[in-house]
Computed example of a mutant assay.
Amino acid sequence: NSWTLALAGAATDLERHPSDFGRLYAGIGDLIVRNENGVYRSTDAGASWAPINGPWESDGDGVGRVELAIAPSNPNVLYVGIQDGYNVRGTDGGLLGLWRTDDAWDPTPSWTRIDVTETDNGTGNHGYCGYNPAFNSLTEQCWYDHELIVDPTNPDILYAGGIALWKYNGTSWSEVSHLVDRPEEGIHADQHTMAWAGNRLLVGNDGGIWSSTDGGATWEDHNTNLAITQFYEGAIHPEDPFFAVGGAQDNGSMRWNGPPTGWRWVLGGDGADNVFSRSNPDTDWALSFQSLAIRRTRNAGASFERADIGINKNGAAFISRFEQCPADENVVIAG
C-alpha cells in the first residue's frame, strides 16, 4: 500500500527480462542534461540500481532522454537510443546515438553503435527521431517522440519510432510508416508507444492506434469510429453541401464527401485555412498548413503546387489565416 523511491531522476523507460522479473533496465533521461541521466540496471526487482557505462558517457554533447528495448527471443540483446540532451552543444534534441549489446547482463556489457544515417539527412546527428522524411526537414524531437521495440522472434530486427516509424533489419533501414511513399495507407506521424500481440505490432502515435501483421508493409487503422479530430478551419463547396475540406490539428487537410465515404486525407502537416475556387470548385482548391504554407491543386488533390512564393513569413503564426475576396476569387489575403 505504499511506494518507495528506488531511483531518482526523470524515468523515461523501464524494460524487464522476459522470463525473470528480477532483472530490469531503466532509463533516466531528463531532456536537459543532468548528472543522473543514463542507463541503469537492477538484478533484485528494482530494490537497488547500478549505472551501466556506455559510449554515450564519453560523448561531450550530453545525455538526454533514454529509450531501451530488450529482444524477447534473446534477452541478452539490448538496444539503447539516447537523445542529445539540451546543453547548447551538439545537436540538442536530436539523436545522440543508438547502440546494441549482446551481453546485457554481463558485469560490463560491450556496445556497438548502429549507423542511423539512412534515417535522417545523412549525418546521423538527427536520426529517426530528429528528422521528418515527409517534409525532408530537420525536426529535433527525440525528447518528444522516441520509442524502440524488437521483433518478438528476431533480435536483429528493431523498430524505432520518431516522427516516422523506421525498421532496421540488422544492416539497413526502411521507413515503414509510409509518410513519404503512400501516406494515405500509412500511419500518423509522431510515434510514442509500441507493443506486440502475437505477431501483430501495435503502434500508438499522435493520431491514434494502428497495427500491422506484416512488419509494417500494410497497416490497419483502429481509429475510424473515434470522433476526436480537432479542426482549425474548413470550407464548403459553393454548390455541393456534401463536399467540404477542413484543416485539422496535426492531421493535415481532409476532404469530406458525405456518407458513406466520410473524411479522406489529402495533404499533410497541421492543416489550417482553405478555400474553394468558385468557378471550378470540383477540382481547384487552396489548402494550407503550419507557418503559412499554402498549396494549390487543380486536379482535385491528385497533386499540389506551391502558392505562397513571395510571402514574407517572418513572424507568421503557427496556424495562420488566409481569406478569399468575395468579388474576385483570384485575390486572397494572408497573414
Results as ranks from 00 to 15, higher is better:
2 S>N: 07
3 W>E: 03
5 L>P: 10
5 L>I: 09
7 L>P: 03
15 E>R: 15
17 H>P: 10
25 Y>G: 00
27 G>P: 00
32 I>W: 15
41 R>C: 00
43 T>S: 05
44 D>S: 06
49 W>H: 07
61 D>N: 14
62 G>D: 11
66 V>F: 02
68 L>K: 05
71 A>C: 06
73 S>F: 13
77 V>L: 14
77 V>R: 15
79 Y>F: 14
87 N>H: 13
90 G>P: 13
96 L>M: 14
101 T>K: 14
102 D>V: 15
103 D>V: 00
104 A>E: 11
105 W>P: 07
105 W>L: 12
106 D>T: 10
106 D>S: 13
107 P>Q: 12
108 T>E: 12
110 S>A: 12
117 T>E: 06
122 G>H: 09
135 F>S: 15
136 N>F: 14
142 C>R: 09
142 C>Q: 10
143 W>C: 03
146 H>A: 01
146 H>P: 01
149 I>N: 05
152 P>T: 11
158 L>W: 05
163 I>C: 08
173 W>T: 05
173 W>E: 08
176 V>Y: 06
185 E>R: 09
185 E>M: 08
194 M>K: 05
198 G>H: 01
205 N>G: 08
208 G>Y: 00
213 T>V: 08
217 A>P: 03
224 T>Q: 14
225 N>G: 06
231 F>M: 13
238 P>N: 02
240 D>H: 07
247 G>S: 07
251 N>M: 06
255 R>G: 00
256 W>L: 03
257 N>V: 05
262 G>W: 07
265 W>C: 04
265 W>P: 09
266 V>I: 13
267 L>N: 05
268 G>N: 00
273 D>L: 03
273 D>S: 15
276 F>S: 04
277 S>D: 07
277 S>Y: 02
280 N>E: 13
285 W>L: 14
286 A>S: 11
288 S>C: 14
292 L>D: 10
295 R>I: 01
302 A>K: 08
306 R>C: 01
316 A>I: 08
316 A>P: 04
319 I>G: 03
321 R>T: 13
321 R>V: 12
324 Q>T: 10
329 E>H: 10
334 A>L: 11
